[in-house]
Design a protein around this nucleic acid. Structure first.
Lengths: 248, 248
DNA sequence: CGTCGGCTTGATTGTGCTCAACCCGGGTGG
DNA sequence: CCACCCGGGTTGAGCACAATCAAGCCGACG
């Protein structure tokens, strides 16, 4: 487990790839100026723990690239992922001393970090940031609650189909492509991570993925590259309302 | 359990029982004045749906008394509760057109309601309210995530023990009593509602409650009144870290 | 070439679901 | 007043789905 050299290449906020979706998306030019001076980039390699549950965390920030996971572990080792942090998502909570969950880099992850205390001071002065953060937090709460339906009520097959469709949808929106018919992408998660996310064992995940492949709903290239033959067919397997439903 | 006549008695904000915990808890005297004039009380009887998922909702507000539930239903009838709203909890989301989940009164519920548009305008002017709302939303997100661990990884018995201990803890804090040894309270939820909350069937809930009773961990008087013989013993059944853990 | 980690597949087990009968208490109508 | 019903809850028997235990595969890397 060698620690790679940290990248400190600083992008100007105006050229930031997550500019339009992150906490700072509503900020005025002068606020952005302040943030620009405050920020530091930091890159974590895949598998590295960014924050341990219970830690006193001195920074907050946004995911610029890569995928990080939020998870919780019981004493006997049972683990549940409780959130997935994607580019533009916010890490850490203003006004809290310690972190409630582990934050782990699922792929290589770059964060745009701010000193916690300084960011908190800025929040008091500039309502744009706190308002945007409220909005983002409400969104996260909604998706956490959708996830609760999945965990509590869906079958293994529905869980897998839901996860694939969510990743596909997100990947498509990242590349600004419409979601229809054939969709291809790389899984950012290992089978074990998928299991932790879905409340399953990794064996069950593997079996269900194989089943979807056997039935011609998806194709695999290697273990991580997925090709969804027809997106609508996959959606039918999620258990969600496919026609006329409200998609968030 | 007779349905009481709806109360329209308007309490002065300064005498409000949830004053110190609700959205308005950080508000200045003049803000409170405005809120005082804006608010209307409304009482819903047990079982009544306060908001349907997908509704255009014209109001926001706080739970003053009683227990409401947030839930989601799949086409085939599978249902998952995704939140429990207790006195001082906030209902509705500023800046959103439609409600994502059903809100149902589990017991008789009284809301302190505000016109949505007016409240949103007030939020822009007064950072105290939006900041408090952010804080509350972050708290809700944390508890939603704890609930995800329960749904994804805990056994039926652990789920029941967890639910009982949470209700007990909350009930104790409401009555400002310490949680130790013997704890008594009334369940605000039917067996079915408990099942919806825990991602179980009502039969399994019933069996597990009976098992805890048989083993002398709890006593029942009727179906709803619970007497926890020794709180620590119950905690041992939750699967949570009982010693030294961080209790949120 | 061997090893190691991530993944797949198989056999068996067990927890919680399903279907079904029954209980209990409260309210209603004859 | 009793008989009845009805809704919420309990209990039982059998089953199914996912967990567990176990073996083996595949590709990367030394």
């Amino acid at each position: 487990m060698n620690v790679k050299a940290t990248l400190f290449v600083k992008t100007d906020c105006r050229d930031c790839p997550i500019r339009h979706r992150a906490v700072c998306s509503r900020s005025t030019a002068d606020e952005l100026e302040i943030l620009d001076r405050m920020k530091t980039y930091r890159t974590y390699e895949a598998g590295q723990t960014i924050i341990w549950a219970g830690d006193q965390v001195q920074f907050l920030g946004s995911v610029v690239s890569g995928v990080a996971t939020l998870s919780q572990t019981m004493e006997d080792g049972r683990r549940q992922m409780v959130g997935m942090l994607l580019p533009s998502d916010f890490v850490g909570r203003p006004g809290r001393e310690s972190a409630p969950f582990d934050v782990v880099a699922a792929t290589e992850v770059t964060l745009c970090r701010f000193q916690k205390s300084a960011f908190e001071r800025l929040m008091v002065q500039s309502p744009a940031i706190s308002r945007r953060l409220l909005e983002m937090t409400l969104d996260e709460l909604d998706s956490a609650r959708e996830w609760m339906l999945l965990l509590g009520r869906k079958t293994a097959r529905e869980k897998i189909a839901s996860l694939l469709s969510i990743i596909a949808r997100r990947d498509a929106s990242l590349h600004l492509q419409p979601i229809s018919g054939n969709v291809e992408f790389d899984l950012p998660l290992s089978r074990e991570a998928m299991a932790d996310y879905l409340g399953l064992t990794l064996e069950t995940v593997s079996r269900q993925v194989s089943a979807l492949k056997r039935e011609g709903i998806i194709e695999l290239q290697g273990k991580r590259h997925i090709n969804i033959i027809d997106f609508a067919t996959l959606l039918n397997e999620t258990g969600d309302d496919t026609d006329g439903g409200i998609w968030t």
